[in-house]
Amino acid sequence: MTSQPYALLEAVSLEVHYGGIAAVKGISFAVEEGELVCLIGANGAGKTSTLKALARMIDASGEIHYRQERLDQLPSHALIGRGLALVPEGRGVFARLTVAENLAMGAYHRNDRAEIKHDLDRIYAMLPRLKERAEQVAGTLSGGEQQMLAIGRALMGRPKLLLLDEPSMGLAPLMVEKVFEVIRTVATQGVTILLVEQNARLALHTCTRGYVMESGKITLADTAANLLADPRVRAAYLGE
């Protein structure tokens, strides 16, 4: 191959249907290497469906290009080995596994023991609360701690592209700030991020670029600064 026609991640005419109902109606978007891109939209806009389609958790039509490879033919469990991780909506920690076991699951596909240990130390240093609770069952963690665990677990897989689905959901403002601090740190470490958020203000202040989704379609795509200034965004998502 001489040219690289696609971005790191590129969705073309992505469609998701539940029974007869279309939740995602043929959207196209791209995320370049090193970017922190956000996808905002109201409840039911189709954000989660989009991420699930990218992670192959649900069937979708259209094309998903990732590092010059078609993802849309691969099973979900083949993705992390290619560097794609998803922190699902509602966190999805394994409640009956300990914190340490959850983190170990994040590195399940890896075989480099020494490096895994190194990454674990790094994550414990970044999220000390997890270290204190390493042997505790994850179901007993607070919501914020579970979100930290879900992100830490995804990082244990050494993703190149991290998909985050509403990491601020259900968290107190202080905890939200902490979570976003972690997200920014991860981004500066070279991980490309696609962030889905309802908290549009926070998301747009964190990202470089953004997409706005409305009932299954992308209605706006621009830099974060332009979206923050856009009167339509201000009216619909920033409460101004």
Partner: peptide, 21 residues
Amino acid sequence: GIAIRATAEDVRVAALMGVDA
């Protein structure tokens, strides 16, 4: 073994970790 327990809890999330159900 841990992967078995993780799968018992949530097959789809375990798959995200690379576990082939």
